[in-house]
């Protein structure tokens, strides 16, 4: 489903964030992206979002090179890719409900569809009772779940999650991981960047480790650190 061929990203300040990355991810897979801070994980996810373009190489999603998408095609591609951002990117002036509905509204979803889907997805992330709250009145874990709800409300094929369990206590983290597994079971391909060692170790999923922009390990059912 996702294929990267010799992908490199050098930022304008000459930082080589990714160097010659080759990777295949199949439909329905659950992939952990691990590596030290500054390794290039966020860069990797932003490339898949078509938020930035690689300096060289191809990124093929469902047979299409997303680097060659026309300007007008990019929004339609992004609707198929949900992203949970490291900093959540919630709108403080909007309620939980409005934040989630926002993603549907700006993609011109019919209002009846919005009224049906938002409560449904809020129930899925367990926030049906907080629909009228504003992000500032939520805990970190709740904000994160709003962000997840917004990312999946469009029913994307691919869900990208950046540092999902960053500042959360273990119980909350596990709650969110259960949610991610449930989303994955519904058929969504998930790529998740994380520093959370215990989660990676216990989930026994595919682990791709990046260091200094290079893929140094790609292991099914691996742990946070390689055997070596």
């Amino acid at each position: 489903m996702i294929r990267l061929h010799g992908v490199s990203k050098i930022y304008p300040n000459r930082v080589a964030a990714l160097v010659n990355v080759n990777l295949n991810v199949e439909r329905g897979e659950f992939v952990f992206l691990v590596g030290p801070s500054g390794a290039g994980k966020t860069t990797f996810l932003r490339l898949l979002m078509r938020h930035i373009l690689p300096t060289s190489g191809h990124i093929i999603v469902d047979g299409r090179n997303i680097c060659r998408l026309r300007q007008w095609e990019v929004p339609y591609y992004r609707r198929r890719v949900g992203m949970v951002f490291q900093d959540f990117k919630l709108l403080p002036a909007k309620t939980v409900y409005e934040n989630v509905a926002f993603a549907l509204r700006v993609t011109e979803t019919p209002p009846s569809e919005i009224r049906r889907r938002v409560p449904e997805v809020l129930r899925l992330v367990g926030l049906q009772d907080r629909a009228k709250a504003h992000p500032a009145d939520l805990s970190g874990g709740e904000q994160q779940r709003v962000s997840i709800a917004r990312a999946i409300v469009n029913r994307p094929d691919i869900l990208l999650a950046d540092e999902l369990t960053g500042n959360l206590d273990p119980d909350t983290s596990w709650g969110i991981m259960d949610l991610m597994q449930e989303i994955n079971r519904m058929g969504t391909t998930i790529i998740m960047a994380t520093h959370n060692m215990s989660i990676v170790n216990r989930m026994k999923k595919r682990v791709v480790e990046i260091d200094c922009g290079r893929v140094v390990r790609d292991e099914d059912g691996g742990g946070y650190r390689g055997e070596a």
């Binding site: 300007q71 929004p75 992004r78 990117k89 926002f102 993609t107």
Partner: peptide
């Protein structure tokens, strides 16, 4: 809002 709109797939004209 504009940043988020674009990230969730709003068209330029929208």
């Amino acid at each position: 809002e504009i940043e988020i709109m674009k990230l969730v797939g709003a068209t330029d004209w929208f």
